[in-house]
Amino acid sequence: MAQMMYRDAVRSTIFEAMEQDDRVVVLGEDVVGGMGTAGGPEAIGGIWSTSTGFYDRFGPDRVIDTPISESAIVGAAGGLALAGKKPVAELMFADFIGVSLDQIWNQIAKFRYMFGGKSTCPAIIRMAYGAGFNAAAQHSQSVHQFLTAMPGLKVVMPSTPEDVRGLLREALRGDDPVIFLEHKALYGVTGEVPDGDYTIPFGHARLARAGQDLTLVATGLMVGRCEVAADTLAKDGIGCDVIDLRTTSPLDEEAVLDSIEVTGRLVVVDEAPQRCSLATDIAALAAQKAFASLKAPVEMVCAPHSPVPFAAELEREYLPSADKIEAAARKALAWR
């Protein structure tokens, strides 16, 4: 066991994969940082420090600093993958996916199916998502909800450094396109990371807290907020399952359904607005497959139906908080 920061978990896992497999190629804006300047390559070393040292070790053919061209970055990742490489592309902010959406949605996600299963496209598209930095409407969004709705993509949302390493390794060893969503607020979080070459299979949720009275379901940054709420409720003798989905596609339905069967009460937490969200997806799952177990209406704690606001007061209100999660839990528990 070692202590590791979330961002270092990203960096070290990719670095190790590049050492082991020369098909692994990294590309993105400022992933080298300093190209064409007096300071030279690696003067900065990546905005999120998730690619520091790559260029010095692996050189310009495998560590490709790109101009600002998200459509070409993602498209090139698709092409590299179709041609037998293992690209790890970075979108600096998840919001920039808008610029590259065709290449993700109509191209990478669909190649294998359209080509009758003949091809693989193991492109990994990493991106930093999430609110909490007063970065406003175009640098704060969550994008998992609509990517999860695209057949052909796997969508990963690690909440701990341990999961970053296990899930990223799984992505690197797999043959499918993977969207790897890193929450900006988690980059600086440190956690225990097991030694060795472990992987975490997709579609297997993690039970972050165990209890009998209520089921809390979340991903990414929201997992920690559920844990805080669960710990508060525990002081009143209320036990919560906190289910960290880890991947939203594939989805570990069983983990959710098994928990609801015991607790009968479900609160889903999602950083995105509620309409057509992960929250409504999980609520629908419960309604469809655990109807008889439910003792209370499903509660959802989501962002409001608005873009992400700038001012601190507004953004604080925008994001689901531990307090709001606790209140929703108490509401579900109070039902009859």
């Binding site: 804006e29 400022d30 940082g33 300093g34 190209m35 064409g36 300047t37 003067a43 900065i44 905005i47 600093d65 101009p67 600002i68």
Partner: peptide, 10 residues
Amino acid sequence: YSEHTGFDYA
């Protein structure tokens, strides 16, 4: 400059 990247490169 675009962010940390030089014009000559990009």
